[in-house]
Amino acid sequence: MKMLSITINTIKLTFKNKTVFFMQILFPIVLIFVFGIILNGTMNKSKNFKDVKIGYYSAENKDMNNEFNEIKRQGIKLGMKFYEEKKESGIKKVEDGKYTCFIEIKNSEINMYKSDKDEFKTSLVESLMKTFIQRYNAIFKIASVNPKALGNINLKSINMSLVNDISINGKGAPGSMDYYAVTMLTYIMMFSLLNGFTTMSKRKQITNRIICSPVRNSDVICGKILGDIVFSAMQILILILFSKFVFKAYFGEHILAVFLIVLAEAAVAISIGISIGLMDKNYDEINTQFVAVSMVIGFLGGSYFPVKYMGKTFQMVANISPIKLINDAVFNVIYENNFVMAFRAIGICSVVCIMFIIITSIFYERRVF
C-alpha cells in the first residue's frame, strides 16, 4: 500500500509539470511532423520500386507460367522491371548487381537467386514471390506423390493471396512519417531519464516526508519508478495513437509488442535517472550533459536518418548505441513480424532496470534524500 501511494503521488506530480508535458508529448509530435514532411521525398523514393530489376527463366509449364504472368503484372504496376534470361547470364547479372534477383521456374520447383547488395530491394521481391513459391513447391510435391489430390486445391485462389502480399509489401519499408513516428518515439523515451532524476532530486521535501515515515528504501524507489513508468506508458500510448490516426503512420499488426519494447526502454531510462538523482547532482548540469549525450546516441541509433544508408563503417559504430537496439526491434516487429530482437531488447532492458533498482536500494542510505 505504501509503495502504491508513492506511485500515485509521483504520477500526480509529473502531470503537474507543464514543462514535462510539453517536452515529452507535444514536442515529439512536432518532431514527427517536421521530419516526416521535410524528408518525405528523400525516404519515399525507395518505395516506388523503379530500381527493382528481376531476371527470370521459365520452362514450359502452362499453369505455372499463367500464375507467374500474374506476378509480373502486379510487379510492373509497382514499377518493377522483368527481363527474361538464361540461367547462367541471369545469375551472373545478380552477382554483378545488375539484377536484384533471378527467378528460375522449373517443371517441379521455383528457385530464387538473390543479391545481398541491397537487402531492401531483395525483401520486396521476396515478399512478392513468397506465397507463389511456397504454394507451387508444395503443389508439385503433392503431385509427385498423389496427383489426384490436386483436384482439392483451388489454384485460382492464389491470385487473391498474391494481391494481399503486394498490398502488405507497400509497407515493406517505412515511409518518412512511418519511420519518424517510431524513431522520435524511441528518442524521446530516453528523456524519461530526466523524469527519474527529477523525481528524486527536485522533490526532496516531499521525499523527506516519506522518509520520516516507516517506509523502506526499496518501497520509495520502486514506488517512484512505477509512477514514472505509468506516466511513460500513457505518453507512449498517446504518441502511438496520435501518429497512427492523425499522421497515418504505420505500426503494423502488433502494436502491443511495439508498446512493450518502448516501455522497456523507458523503464531503463527511469531507473538510471533515479539512481543519478540520488547522487544529489545539479539538475541543469545533468540536463545539459544528458541532452548532448542523447543527441549522439540518437544519431548513431538512426533517430535522424536510417543507419542502413550511412555505410558499413558507420553501421558498425552505430551498434554501440542502445537506441539502435530498440529501433531495430520495433522495425523488425512492424515490417517483418519478427519478435527475436523484441525479446532480446525487452530482456536486456528488464535486466538492466532490475540491476539499477537493486543497486540503488542497497547502496544508498536514507540520508541521501
Rank of each mutant, 00 (worst) to 15 (best):
271 S>L: 03
163 V>M: 10
115 S>W: 11
175 G>Y: 04
85 E>K: 15
97 G>D: 04
87 K>D: 08
121 K>Y: 04
116 D>A: 07
81 K>F: 00
149 A>I: 05
51 D>S: 13
32 I>R: 02
180 Y>P: 02
363 F>M: 05
324 K>F: 02
113 Y>M: 02
11 I>K: 11
129 M>W: 00
77 K>W: 00
63 D>P: 01
11 I>T: 11
181 A>H: 09
340 V>H: 10
125 V>R: 09
205 Q>G: 07
191 F>D: 05
263 L>I: 12
287 N>I: 01
46 S>K: 09
231 F>A: 04
77 K>M: 12
171 K>R: 10
72 K>Q: 12
253 E>V: 08
342 A>W: 11
198 T>W: 02
208 N>R: 15
91 I>P: 03
199 T>R: 00
31 L>R: 12
246 V>F: 09
78 L>I: 02
3 M>F: 03
177 M>N: 09
154 N>C: 04
267 A>V: 12
60 E>D: 13
159 N>E: 10
43 M>D: 02
356 F>Q: 06
157 S>W: 00
92 K>L: 08
166 I>C: 00
171 K>W: 02
96 D>R: 13
103 I>Q: 10
127 S>V: 00
134 Q>D: 14
83 Y>P: 04
294 S>E: 10
254 H>E: 08
176 S>P: 14
101 C>A: 15
123 S>K: 12
305 F>G: 03
53 K>L: 04
162 L>M: 15
300 L>T: 05
51 D>I: 05
100 T>H: 05
200 M>H: 04
61 N>P: 00
22 F>L: 15
58 S>M: 10
308 K>N: 11
65 N>R: 09
256 L>D: 07
181 A>K: 06
296 V>R: 02
189 M>P: 08
44 N>E: 07
291 V>N: 14
358 I>V: 10
298 G>F: 01
92 K>D: 06
93 K>M: 10
94 V>H: 08
172 G>I: 08
99 Y>V: 06
102 F>S: 07
236 I>S: 05
52 V>A: 07
46 S>E: 07
138 A>I: 13
45 K>Y: 03
331 F>C: 09
56 Y>A: 09
54 I>N: 10
188 I>A: 08
309 Y>E: 07
218 S>R: 15
35 F>N: 06
162 L>Y: 03
285 E>R: 15
91 I>S: 06
122 T>C: 08
70 E>Q: 04
328 D>S: 14
